[in-house]
Amino acid sequence: MTGEWMRTARLYVRLLGAQLRAAAQYKADFLVMIFAAVLSQGVGLIFLAALFARVPHLDGWSFWLVALMYAMVTVAEGIGSLLFEGTWRLAAMVNSGELDYLLVRPYPVALQLMSSAVGFNGLGNLVLGTAMIVVALCYAPLQWSPLQGLILVLLAGSAVVVKLAMNLATNAASFWLQGRNPVVAYAMHQVGELARYPLGIYPVGLRVVLTTVVPFAFTSYYPVSYLADGVDATIGLLTPAVAVACVFIAIWVFRRGLRRYESAGS
């Protein structure tokens, strides 16, 4: 059983490595994308810093904690682009029938899909985001203990999983829509951007949606809330459970979609 898991993981790295080799032919692209990613995320950070230079709190949250939320989304997006960028190709693959070959190979279709592209912008996001998290953790008013550190790692990991699973689930909508572009996933990605800021600033309806229907609040706000012992501290502990649920839902939706696949385009 563990052998099977190891093989799956090893092959994922192998498939991704092939994409990396392919992308290595376009070195200028690589630099441009990293530069653009750092610039985009950096500008967001400047915005936050400029805002907090005039106001001490945003809905009761201090700068470093908001920066932490912001950076968690940045890191999750970075991991998504770097390691799972292929997810975004599903719409095109369904539309063109390119998915056929994935279905006749002895490896899970979703994993073949997710490893079918590399987004170098993710490297920029990941480096900048991680740096932001480290700095924010140093300055944020948090109580530290070994247990707390362990929980931090668990929650942060779960937050990333929530984001990735949501991305897979929303991209799987392409099985039904069959358009060439992942419109639904892109719109949901933008919804996910709202999670960069404290949930409390949004109207109640939106807060409920971001907690339940599209639980992006678990990618940043709730975990940070737990760490900072904020208003929604207990909900924050649910993050791993939400992550597991999201993964199961994403796999279920993907499988349902795959049953609908009609292999068009030929």
């Binding site: 994409q19 080799r21 992308a23 056929d100 070959y101 030929s266």
Partner: peptide, 13 residues
């Protein structure tokens, strides 16, 4: 499986 209309090779490899 081989689909003559479509390659299974990695385009940039």
């Amino acid at each position: 499986v081989l689909f003559g209309q479509r390659s299974q090779l990695w385009w940039d490899l």
